Computed example of a mutant assay.
Amino acid sequence: MKKVPGQTVKAAGILLISGEGTPAHFLLMRHRDRWDLPKGHCEDGETFVETALRETEEETGIPQSAISLDPDFQFDLKYQVTYKNYGDLPFEKHVRYFIGFVRDQPALTLTEHESAQWWAWDPPNAPIQSETIDPLILAAQQHLS
């Protein structure tokens, strides 16, 4: 997708939770210097849900058919970003996260991350990433309780 200054860049991802009925674990992906969730940019004409499912499958190898999205939860974040190819021009980024449930802890095929880890679902976990992951987990905990 070609970006235009002033344009809102859309992205979506999933907080994957294992366990049937009661959350047991959640998945975090490891970049070189931080933890993250499976997520990515929306392609032209793609909905947030379509993006979240596609990106999660691409980054984890978990098929979309194995993920059950919570229809009553979405968590939106908006913040400014810059991209190397666009110099210092600011873009607004709008990321929508969903809760997705999977049975057990499926085997992962990582394509964009160094590693991944299933963390025990015991919010509040130690601070992980204060701008995105921590508030998302808190909102998910409140929603699920």
Rank of each mutant, 00 (worst) to 15 (best):
P63N: 10
E55Y: 00
E55R: 15
K39S: 13
P63I: 12
D33F: 14
V49E: 09
D44E: 14
L28R: 15
L27T: 15
L53C: 05
K39P: 00
W35S: 04
E55M: 09
L37N: 10
E55D: 05
M29H: 12
T60W: 00
R54I: 02
L28G: 05
F48P: 00
P63Y: 11
D36I: 00
E58M: 04
A52K: 06
G45Y: 14
P63Q: 10
D44F: 09
P38T: 05
H31P: 08
E59I: 09
I62D: 15
E58Y: 02
R32Y: 13
E43F: 05
R32T: 14
E55H: 05
H25M: 12
L53A: 03
E43I: 04
E59T: 04
T51F: 00
D44M: 09
E43C: 06
I62N: 15
M29P: 12
L37I: 03
K39I: 01
E50L: 01
F48Q: 01
L53Q: 03
F48E: 06
E43T: 08
Q64M: 12
E43Q: 11
D36A: 11
E43A: 09
T60H: 01
A24C: 04
R34G: 00
T47Q: 03
W35I: 09
E43L: 10
E59P: 08
R34T: 07
E46P: 02
T47G: 03
I62L: 09
E57Q: 11
K39T: 04
E46T: 02
M29D: 06
G45E: 15
P38M: 08
G40E: 02
M29W: 08
L28W: 13
T51D: 07
W35K: 07
E50I: 00
P38I: 03
K39E: 11
G61W: 13
H25D: 12
L37W: 07
W35L: 10
P63L: 09
L37Q: 12
T56E: 03
A24H: 08
V49I: 03
G40W: 05
Q64Y: 10
T47S: 11
E59K: 08
Q64H: 13
T47A: 01
C42M: 08
W35T: 12
Q64N: 12
D33M: 14
E58F: 01
L27M: 09
F48M: 05
L37R: 12
V49Q: 03
F48A: 04
H41E: 14
T60Y: 00
E50V: 00
R32M: 10
A52G: 08
D44P: 15
P38Y: 06
Q64P: 04
R30Q: 14
R30F: 13
E46D: 05
E55Q: 12
G61R: 12
L53Y: 14
E59G: 05
T47L: 02
T47F: 03
L28F: 10
E50M: 01
T47N: 02
E43M: 07
T60G: 02
E46N: 06
R30G: 10
H31N: 15
H31S: 15
F26G: 06
R54K: 13
V49Y: 00
H25A: 09
R32P: 12
E57W: 00
E50Q: 06
M29C: 11
E43S: 09
T56Y: 02
A24I: 00
D36Q: 14
E50F: 07
F48I: 07
P38Q: 04
A52C: 11
